[in-house]
Design a protein around this nucleic acid. Structure first.
Length: 572
RNA sequence: CGGGAUGUAGCGCAGUUGGUAGCGUGCCACGUUCGGGACGUGGAGGUCGGGCGUUCGAGUCGCCUCAUCCCGACCA
């Protein structure tokens, strides 16, 4: 590619409001341009990166016995009614009518399409297992996209679906996919990418993992144990419950606490620890709008994912202004209306000498013994894990880090084959619903993830496996015929060898060329200059290490091949 | 969907009490430069997000609307 013909514009400053590093770099280099909120055009360099990443994914999927297919972007309502998701999913699914007034949707994932594709075509257990995958555009009307390519509404995703006779077979294949994912992320150059246990959400199913790039800009919180390797998304993270003993023989009593209603105020006022308070967190049922109260130890937060899973319902935060029936700020576990759903976190089980709201304005209860003063049928684990709490597996201290989800894998079970009526005959001649797994990787997010951890103050540092061009040729003084001739001769030789080369054939100063080359971050730069040519020398610069190698003109190609090989080996 | 902010040249920004719009950068031409974002001279580029209103007159004031960004809710 001749840089003079590339549609791009480099920028010294990032557009205002752009502050995540991958977004800054992609914008400044002109690799992407925003069209609307969460919708971007990828310029040629970003698209070339995407293609290289896709090809690595293809290679790993094919090695995992996958076959590439392509599902439609637009699907009829009926397909999504069969699985039940037409009504389950909210406005993040784009719906519209075609000219015949038929309800259609834009695909945000393709479980339905994959089941529709194989139903009736696959009819025997002998044809299982198999895996089909595609790399295609998805549209999800996210309520809030952000961070450049990290969270967008329209994006390219690889999604794969496997079908099995038994759960055991799915599990075995699931771990093959886990390995394939590990390979993909290593090969595209991601270093701090880990897999964590995750929530299955609306996908259904039991076991799921997310592949997370550790970065402070990540949107997900991850709970990690350095000792035993326990890694989990906060949504499903568990920990060992610490034992706190506060013996109390004093009778329960009510004390005035005035305007002190928040945990901070109440503990300061009564001079007690947060761990000795029973905190009430109020939600409402999304459909019936009835209150739900969760009681949890004062120093802990409610994990809303766990709450939703226990309730099997969608919830909303409680709007205190809209309801006077609860003594907001003084809510306690005693004498609550029977209409209210009440849940108790395990962190308050057996606790004595606690402080709780009195369900009465300006009053709290003290000397509250949970077992003595309350009849709780069940305590549940519904609290968010805090940094410093102990690992459930090995009791080591847990830490919390942020991550970007680059990929995920799910053991789906028979949710879709059952709801959509896909059956095969087993060896006994009985109809059965195959067991499914599904596996996704966001391609654009992978690009952003690579940049999140591979850059310096001058710009991107692209791994050789995904860089749009492997070699960036900078002819200094392209108006010098000798330089021009040599530079283009190298360019042509590299092209002949199928080594992706970019030549900066613009008539501009060395400083501009170097600055742009640094920003672009191609793994290797070749500098051809009049001074160098006088000494029969070409300069090779390795972007990652800034290492400079001077080589004789006739040795350049051999030396380049060696360097490229070495850079590739680092990713194996 | 709540809370906050911003919309002026491709990008980054300034624009005073209301008087017909500017700076930096980028772009074009010519000349001098030329290995780390060169310099000089001359240019092109704006219905000031849009609409309605107040006014002799609106980038500036009022109302409405749209878009974008940030925080939260949300999120396969």
């Amino acid at each position: 590619m001749k840089l003079s013909k590339l549609v791009f514009e480099t920028q010294k400053e990032a557009p205002s409001g752009v502050n995540i590093i991958s977004h800054v770099l992609l914008s400044r280099a002109g690799f992407i341009k925003q069209v609307a909120n969460g919708i971007y055009t990828l310029g040629a360099p970003a698209q070339k990166m995407a293609l290289k990443i896709e090809n690595i994914i293809r290679d790993e999927m094919n090695k995992a016995d996958g076959q590439e297919v392509k599902f439609p972007v637009v699907m009829p309502r009926e397909l999504w009614e069969m699985s039940g998701r037409y009504f389950q999913i909210g406005s993040e699914m784009v719906r519209f009518k075609d000219r015949a007034d038929h309800d259609m949707v834009l695909g945000m994932t393709h479980e339905e399409a994959s089941v529709q594709f194989v139903t009736n075509t696959i009819s025997s257990y002998k044809q299982l297992p198999f895996m089909i995958y595609q790399i295609q555009t998805k549209f999800r009307d996210e309520p809030r996209s952000r961070g450049g390519l990290i969270r967008v509404r329209e994006f390219t995703m690889k999604d794969a679906y496997s079908f099995h006779n038994t759960l055991e077979d799915l599990e075995e294949y699931y771990y093959r996919q886990h390995q394939a994912y590990t390979n993909v992320f290593r090969r595209i150059g991601l270093k701090n990418c880990i897999s964590v246990k995750s929530d299955t959400g609306m996908m259904g199913g039991q076991i799921a993992h997310e592949f997370m790039l550790l970065t402070p800009d990540g949107e997900d919180e991850l709970v990690i144990c350095d000792k035993c390797g326990y890694k989990s998304n906060m949504e499903v993270a568990e920990c060992e419950l610490e034992q706190i003993n506060t013996k109390n023989d004093l009778p329960l009593s009510e004390v005035p606490t005035g305007e002190h209603t928040s945990i901070d105020d109440v503990t300061a006022f009564l001079k007690i620890q947060k761990t000795n308070v029973i905190k009430a967190v109020v939600y409402v049922d999304k459909d019936e709008k009835k209150p739900i109260i969760v009681f949890v130890r004062g120093d802990l937060e409610v994990n809303e994912s766990k709450l939703k899973k226990i309730l099997r319902k969608e919830i909303l935060p409680f709007d205190a202004a809209g309801d006077a029936s609860l003594a907001f700020g003084n809510i306690g576990p005693m004498n609550l209306s029977k209409d209210i759903t009440v849940l108790f976190d395990r962190s308050i089980e057996n606790r004595e000498g606690m402080v709780a709201g009195a369900n009465k304005a300006k009053h709290h209860l003290i000397n509250f013994n949970v077992n003595r003063d309350l009849n709780v049928k069940e305590f549940v684990d519904i609290a968010k894990v805090k940094a410093g709490q102990k690992c459930k597996v090995c009791s080591h201290e847990l830490k919390i880090e942020n991550g970007i989800e680059v990929g995920n894998i799910f053991q789906l079970g028979d949710k879709y084959t059952k709801s959509m009526g896909m059956t095969v005959l087993n060896e006994k001649g009985e109809m059965m619903n195959p067991i499914m797994g599904c596996y996704g990787i966001g391609v654009g997010r992978a690009i952003a993830s690579i940049l999140q951890e591979s850059f310096d103050e001058k710009g991107m540092i692209l791994p050789v496996s995904v860089a749009p061009w492997t070699v960036h040729i900078c002819p200094i003084r392209i108006d010098d015929e000798k330089v021009k001739e040599k530079a283009f001769s190298l360019y042509n030789q590299l092209n002949a060898l199928s080594i992706d080369a970019l030549i900066d054939d613009r008539e501009t100063s060395a400083g501009v060329k170097f600055a742009d080359a640094d920003l672009f971050g191609m793994p290797i730069r070749l500098v051809v200059s009049p001074k160098g040519l006088d000494k029969n020398e070409i300069e090779i610069v390795i972007r990652k290490t800034r290492e400079v190698v001077l080589v004789k003109e006739d040795e350049v190609i051999e030396k380049l091949k060696n360097i490229i090989l070495k850079l590739q080996e680092e990713l194996n």
